[in-house]
Design a protein around this nucleic acid. Structure first.
Lengths: 116, 116
DNA sequence: GTAACCTACAACCTAATGGTTGTAGTATCG
DNA sequence: CGATACTACAACCATTAGGTTGTAGGTTAC
């Protein structure tokens, strides 16, 4: 089993990056890894600078990487980072299930009445 | 299969709510559903008002519910909402896998050379 | 009833977000 | 070379976030 160990600060960045519809769309669009920043810019009714900032936010969160190709800057989604984020939430569910199990076992050990 | 259909605005709220370590801790602590706001307040080195605001953010995102019990306000995490958030990220992975599959099948149909 | 406790809310402050325009550097094309 | 396309960055603006203090309303305990 792979242990997901992201620092809390990094988790902050990841969730914050995903808390914007434009950025989530960029993540989706850049899964192919062949879109330049200006190509992304044409998809949205905002300035190119705004798109650059969105990409920068995604990059700080590690959800996206950039590589230079000639005069273009190709954006590429890091699917591992997406998976890590998903597992962070799975972990909460596991925690929850564990607590339910422990609670259930306590009930089983003491069917009715005072334990002392 | 259950279709997760959260509005984009709701998704914004959910991810934004999770983009803070204190709030993530509240979600985890309130999985039992028996913590009052003031009990939560004792866990963190910030004012009670700040904790109230965090709980309000979580509530707006639907990650947490509150119910009044006497003079207390008991906070309870909605695990279904956590699951929904997790599935949103899973969906990205599925999309990604689909694209890889489609790409692979194109390669299989046209092993080498011009299709026309 | 009064004191203590839990909550609610308004007002305020500072820093960060998300957006803009403008200017300038760097590649590619003709 | 000059023109065009892609990117980078500074400066600015409005709004929101996250925090504070202070005041006030219900609830429980004594």
């Amino acid at each position: 089993m792979v242990v997901v160990s992201l620092s809390p600060e990094r988790v902050d960045l990841v969730f914050h990056a995903l808390a914007d519809a434009t950025r989530r769309d960029i993540v989706e669009a850049a899964m192919g890894g062949e879109l330049s920043v200006s190509a992304l810019g044409r998809r949205y009714p905002i300035s190119l600078t705004a798109v650059q900032k969105h990409v920068a936010v995604l990059e700080r969160a590690g959800l996206v990487r950039r590589r230079r190709l000639g005069r273009e800057q190709l954006v590429c989604t890091d699917m591992d980072a997406v998976r890590d984020a998903s597992r962070l939430l799975d972990r909460l569910e596991v925690l929850w299930r564990d607590r339910l199990d422990r609670f259930a076992s306590v009930l089983a050990d003491e069917p009715a009445g005072d334990p002392t």
